[in-house]
Nucleic acid binder design. Structure first.
Lengths: 210, 210
DNA sequence: GGCGTGACCATACATCATGTATGGACAACA
DNA sequence: TGTTGTCCATACATGATGTATGGTCACGCC
């Protein structure tokens, strides 16, 4: 099914297709899974498990916030590139299946929690956000990632260009958290990102996939 | 169908349900529409047509950017509140139907174009964005809106709270475009917006739907 | 009045997808 | 040798979609 998803949309797959591709019988399929949605759930768990690992380093990272952020965003792009079929499938279908919904919202929550914790630990960011709801800000960045990675996977311009995707998403994180606009390579100007405060902690990057 | 969508998800509706609710025969339905997706398309056109109008003021607006922004975001919230069923339906299904896909991407594009034009007209913002892709930044804000309004309609925390939704989305726009973080009511600080008083719901509407 | 036509409706069908049986083959294991 | 776990083929009940086919009824026109 993972392979089928690389070429067909989830709702275009019938269990018959899966049966054929997997070489098992209908009876066997329903013995192990209650539905094709359940299979997708398992595939998603596998995919995000990788992401969890990949995210580790920068979550507890000590490096410069913006650098860490950009690295995280790039990691996310890679995760999505490697699991485009499965991830697109759940993004398109979590609303229609209770199990998938719980799973995806949980993933988004985990990511949001990590980001919020990072923000909380950074006094400078906290001050900047003023009375803004920290969790809400973290959640919005999480979901922005979900959407942009999805659009990239769905080949929707301008996010079908990975560089644009990474620049834009990184810029969103840094702008909202630090107020610095320019995160990408541009030797021509430099009004924004000045001396980056190395406040004990940096920020949480990575996409909304773990 | 518009009424049915207030209580049931689009894919849970059969044309039989629509037939019963509308009091027409199967034959008549298929005489006027090729599928239930086509009906949804019409409903979406109706809904966003309203939005188009409501957006005008903001688009050619002369008022203070941040105020205009917040007003627009609130407008969007209202539009979504008034058309939650229809808008949730298209957000959940544009990926699975070519017609709906073209329609929704067109709407997102129109909105992105308007935002990008605004940005281009504002030298200060252009400078701040540096070499960032203006259209990409505009598109990311458009899609962030789509996602957050949708989550609010789907009752996903923390966006099920309209004030949080508006504050967060407004903050994203102002942060990314102007670098000002605080857009909401915070007597403690005030580096950005002037005397902004946010009465959760007293502003005009304009979501990412036009 | 006779008649075509447009707007509907009821019914039926072909097709396809899902999920649930039912019964049997086969190998490992005790 | 019998039990059990893993699979398969087949069939079936249900429900959804989209396509006929044929009929009713009102209206406007000659």
């Amino acid at each position: 099914m993972r392979e089928l998803l690389q070429q067909h949309r989830f709702d275009a797959l019938s269990v018959a297709d899966i049966l054929t591709a997997a070489g098992v019988s209908r009876a066997s399929f329903y013995f192990y899974f209650p539905s094709k949605q359940a299979v997708l759930g398992e595939l998603v768990r596998e995919a995000v498990a990788q992401g969890q690992q990949a995210a580790r380093p920068w979550i507890d990272g000590q490096q410069d916030p913006v650098t860490a952020l950009r690295a995280g965003v790039s990691d996310g792009a890679r995760l999505w590139r490697d699991n485009a079929g499965v991830l697109m499938a759940i993004v398109e279908n979590w609303a229609s299946d209770e199990g998938l919904r719980a799973l995806w919202l949980e993933q988004m929550n985990l990511f949001t929690d990590a980001a919020a914790a990072r923000i909380h630990a950074d006094l400078h960011v906290r001050r900047r956000l003023g009375s803004m709801d920290v969790r809400a800000a973290a959640a919005s960045l999480t979901w922005l990632g979900e959407r942009l990675y999805y659009l990239a996977a769905a080949a929707v311009p301008p996010f079908n260009n990975e560089e644009v995707l990474v620049d834009t998403l990184t810029n969103a994180w840094t702008s909202i958290l630090y107020g610095d606009a320019v995160t990408h390579p541009d030797p021509a100007r430099g009004p924004a990102s000045a001396p980056q405060r190395q406040s004990s902690e940096s920020v949480p990057p990575t996409p909304p996939t773990e």
